[in-house]
Write a protein that binds this DNA or RNA. Structure first.
Lengths: 129, 129
DNA sequence: GGTTGACTTGGAGTTAACTCCAAGAGGTAC
DNA sequence: GTACCTCTTGGAGTTAACTCCAAGTCAACC
C-alpha cells in the first residue's frame, strides 16, 4: 500500500518516530515486502492516525502500548479496552477543565494588562492631567 | 513568612522542585534569613501558585522563565508580557480544542465498546437465537 | 557494473523537567 | 556538647519520548 516516506508525509511524523512507534508496540508490526521494506496497509495507516491523535491529546505512550497489546489479544479484551479508554477519557476531562480554568485566568491577566496599557496611553495624550 | 517545607506542603510541590524553579528563574529569588534558610513571602507564594498553575496547564518552563524575567525588568515590559500571554493563551486554546475532539472520539469508541458488550451479553442470555 | 538514494537494523544521544545525592551548616533537645 | 533534624549548595542521575547515527541492503538508473 504505502512506504514509510509516504506515511511520514501524510501524518507529519518523522520516519524515525514511525519506526520508534512500531518498535515499542505503539502500532502493530507493519509488514515488509520481499526486500524487507515496510509496506503500510490502510489499517496500519488508521493505527498511525489514531495513535498520533491520542499522543497529541497527551495520552502516555505506555498506556497506548497497553491498548494496542490488548487489541491484539482479541475479543476477550473488549472490556479491559473499554475500561482503559474510560480511565483515560476521565483524565483527559480533568486536564481539559484545568486548562480551561487557566485560560480564563490568562484572559483576565491579559485584560488587566490591556487596561494598564490604555491608561498609560491616555496619560501620554493628556500629560497635563 | 514561611519555610520551604510549608510551601512544599501547601502547593504539593517537592522541595527539590521549588529549589529547581528558583534556580532556573521560574520564580524570583526567595530571600534567606540570617542563617541562609529560604523565607517565602506572601508574594513568593503567589508566584509559586501561579507557576504551578501555568505548568500544569502545559506552558513550557522556558516561556515562564521569560515571563518572570520580563516581570523583573519592570513596567517597560508590560506590552511584551501581554503579547507573551496572548501567544500562550492562543496555543492553550488550540490544545484544548484538540483535546476536546479527542474526547468526543474516545466517547464514541467507548459507546461502541458498550454496544459490543451489550450484544455479547444478550447472546449469552438467549443462546437459542 | 558502479553509483545513487531510500530503506533496513540495533543502539547511542538528546531534550525537558524534574529528582536525587553528598557534604556541610544552623538551631533545638536532651 | 553531641545527636538530630531541617535546611543549604552544586552537581549528577532519571524518565519519557523521541531523534540521530553507523553500517549495511536493495532496486534502479546511467
Amino acid at each position: 500500500m504505502c512506504t514509510i516516506a509516504e506515511v511520514s508525509r501524510k501524518f507529519e511524523l518523522s520516519q524515525d518516530t514511525l519506526r520508534y512507534y512500531e518498535r515499542v508496540g505503539l502500532i502493530p508490526r507493519v509488514n515488509r515486502n520481499k526486500s524487507g521494506i515496510r509496506d503500510y496497509t490502510e489499517e496500519d495507516c488508521r493505527w498511525v492516525e489514531f495513535i498520533k491523535c491520542m499522543r497529541s491529546a497527551g495520552l502516555p505512550v505506555e498506556v497506548l502500548i497497553e491498548y494496542v497489546s490488548l487489541f491484539q489479544q482479541g475479543d476477550a479484551t473488549v472490556l479491559a479496552r473499554k475500561d482503559l479508554l474510560i480511565e483515560q477519557r476521565n483524565q483527559l476531562m480533568l486536564r481539559i477543565e484545568e486548562m480551561q480554568k487557566m485560560m480564563e485566568r490568562m484572559n483576565d491577566k491579559i485584560d488587566r494588562y490591556e487596561q494598564t496599557i490604555l491608561a498609560a496611553k491616555k496619560t501620554l495624550q493628556k500629560p497635563e492631567e
